Computed example of a mutant assay.
Amino acid sequence: MAANNVKSNIESIARDAGAAIMDIYQSDDFDVKKKGDDSPLTKADLAAHNVICDGLRKLDTQYPIISEESSDISWEQRKHWCRYWLVDPLDGTKEFIKRNGEFTVNIALIEKGVPIMGVVYAPVLDAMYTGERDRGAFLNGKAVSVATKEPDTLRVVGSRSHPSQETIDWLDALGKPYEIVPMGSSLKICLVAEGKADIYPRLGPTCEWDTGAAHAVLSAAGGQVTTVTGDPLLYNQKEDYLNPHFIAR
């Protein structure tokens, strides 16, 4: 189990990355480029990536790092890893470009395919979500947990930038009243973790770095993330980084 001082160090690294992002967010020069999958990349993504990787490499305990911006690591190499850091330096780049504040810094510690510690930091909101296995989940130091009772009307977190008709069809098939709570980035899973939403069905493409840190927070808050068939969502179990469709609840 990761020690408390490690979690504190990761929170500090996330704050430093958030500060680097905010320096660019408050400027007029995002330097937006397109990656191979046509998703946007900005100077802020790269600045946060550098801050996080530099910070993780300075820790006393050294683990390999997978970051969205440096993920070209062979399966032959990483399939033997027991523990590693999984990083999304800036999740919600589209929200960043829109300047709506719904973007996050994400750092997770993965052990044998399971997120055991995670930090999600939203710098505009100054919201620091942390979760650690067997130690609980917190928002800015205050304990949070999932909702314990299912309401008459389900509060469903939906993507602000990636609406999905397949998701609407899945919800309609539940036969239960629901309301959509729109949110960007990994904050969607965090809303479930703090009890402000009941479920987040993701029936669209995501990668492991998009979910790892928030998954750890939700697990520590008493929730779960499963595939649509009910199996646990696991990490670093195959050659590519794509997640299957999943349900966070």
Rank of each mutant, 00 (worst) to 15 (best):
L125R: 13
D126E: 11
A127R: 15
M128D: 12
M128F: 00
M128P: 03
Y129H: 10
Y129K: 15
Y129A: 13
T130L: 13
T130K: 07
T130E: 10
G131I: 08
G131F: 04
E132S: 09
R133V: 15
R135V: 03
G136M: 06
G136H: 09
A137N: 14
A137R: 07
L139G: 08
L139V: 12
L139K: 04
N140K: 15
G141L: 11
K142P: 02
A143V: 10
V144L: 10
V144N: 05
V144F: 00
S145I: 03
V146S: 00
V146Y: 02
V146A: 00
V146T: 07
A147V: 06
K149L: 08
K149P: 05
K149Q: 06
K149Y: 02
P151F: 03
D152V: 13
T153V: 15
L154T: 04
L154F: 11
R155S: 12
R155F: 04
R155K: 11
V156W: 02
G158Y: 00
G158K: 04
G158P: 05
R160P: 01
R160T: 14
S161L: 03
H162L: 13
S164L: 11
S164F: 03
Q165N: 07
E166R: 06
T167F: 02
T167Y: 06
T167S: 14
I168R: 11
D169L: 04
D169I: 14
L171I: 01
A173P: 09
L174H: 04
L174N: 01
K176P: 01
K176V: 14
P177R: 09
Y178P: 08
E179A: 10
E179T: 15
E179C: 13
G184N: 07
S185P: 15
S186A: 15
S186V: 08
L187H: 14
L187T: 03
K188E: 14
K188F: 08
K188R: 15
C190H: 12
C190D: 12
C190W: 09
L191E: 11
L191C: 07
V192C: 12
V192M: 05
A193H: 09
E194D: 14
G195H: 03
G195L: 06
A197G: 06
A197I: 00
D198N: 13
D198F: 04
I199K: 08
Y200N: 05
Y200C: 05
P201W: 13
P201S: 09
L203C: 08
P205K: 03
C207L: 01
C207P: 00
C207F: 10
E208P: 02
W209D: 06
D210M: 03
D210A: 11
D210T: 06
T211Y: 00
G212L: 02
G212A: 14
A213Y: 04
H215D: 12
A216R: 06
V217M: 10
S219P: 02
A220N: 07
G222L: 03
Q224V: 14
Q224R: 14
V228R: 04
V228P: 05
G230M: 07
D231N: 14
D231V: 01
D231Q: 14
P232V: 10
P232N: 11
L234H: 07
L234N: 01
L234Q: 09
Y235I: 00
N236L: 10
N236R: 06
N236A: 04
Q237P: 03
